[in-house]
Design a protein around this nucleic acid. Structure first.
Lengths: 128, 128
DNA sequence: GGCAAAGTACGATGGGTCTCGTACCATAAG
DNA sequence: CTTATGGTACGAGACCCATCGTACTTTGCC
């Protein structure tokens, strides 16, 4: 992979109100290898499927994964740093949204094809 | 990944003529996670791009990668075991072909979307 | 202020995986 | 048979990554 790593920077001093900000790669910085790598993990693929099904922002805790809280944090960070989801704080919660526009512009049809593939495989095998 | 590993079995005692055979996953055994993982490596993505561009079977050595011979063997094995390419021996050479039919049947549009994404990114950045 | 909720940071651990070199095997050609 | 070609097997090294637990921070509410 030999990936970017630039996205790991934390923004400490916030602008306006002092809200915590999270670093996201710009659209042009999104790499197909990083996207495919992020989605090759079953947990993260599951997250993205649920996010796509919800068609709305969800908090981290709304998406239940069979792993610990810190592992969940890890997976969401990978998704954000690869450019697949955008995250914003809202109170104590963190909202997660698919970056559909960016992904569809950059890689037309990719996200839909992967989601369709994942859904098809899920019901071909014994369900979710 | 916690992947299959069943595909690693070597066929030693050959049938008919004694030709060396290679184990391939059946169509139904191909997993989207394994496919995405295989294609998330730059070398392997490059191999698949060239294979798609050739639209014909190629030997391993026709696809030049900036890695050693044994590493090349490794990458082709990952591609075969994930169900992306089929490999057959022909003389001393090994022919590689994209499993387009299987992939398109299982995951419609996926391969084309990934190839288009990779090609788009390649000329968006400083070429290949 | 005090407390609960939602995440984060950090370090550890166990297991992949990308890379290599060297030795080896199978096939084809001389 | 000998040699060259094309690829494999094996082991090693370095790094990456999914997972966890514990301690901590931030925010909202009472």
């Amino acid at each position: 992979m030999t990936a970017t790593s630039a996205a790991a920077v934390r923004v400490t001093a916030a602008p306006g109100v002092g809200a915590r900000l999270l670093a996201h790669p710009a659209r042009e910085e999104i790499r197909i290898e990083a996207v495919l790598h992020a989605l090759s993990d079953p947990m993260r693929l599951q997250v993205v499927r649920e996010l796509a099904a919800a068609e709305d922002e969800l908090t981290c805790s709304r998406i239940e994964l069979p792993v610990s809280k810190s592992t969940t944090t890890h997976h969401f960070r990978v998704l954000r740093e690869s450019g697949i989801v955008s995250q914003t704080y809202r109170g104590t919660a963190k909202m997660n949204g698919l970056r559909r526009d960016d992904l569809d512009t950059l890689f037309p049809g990719l996200l839909d094809a992967i989601l369709a593939a994942a859904n098809q495989q899920a019901d071909r095998l014994g369900e979710d």
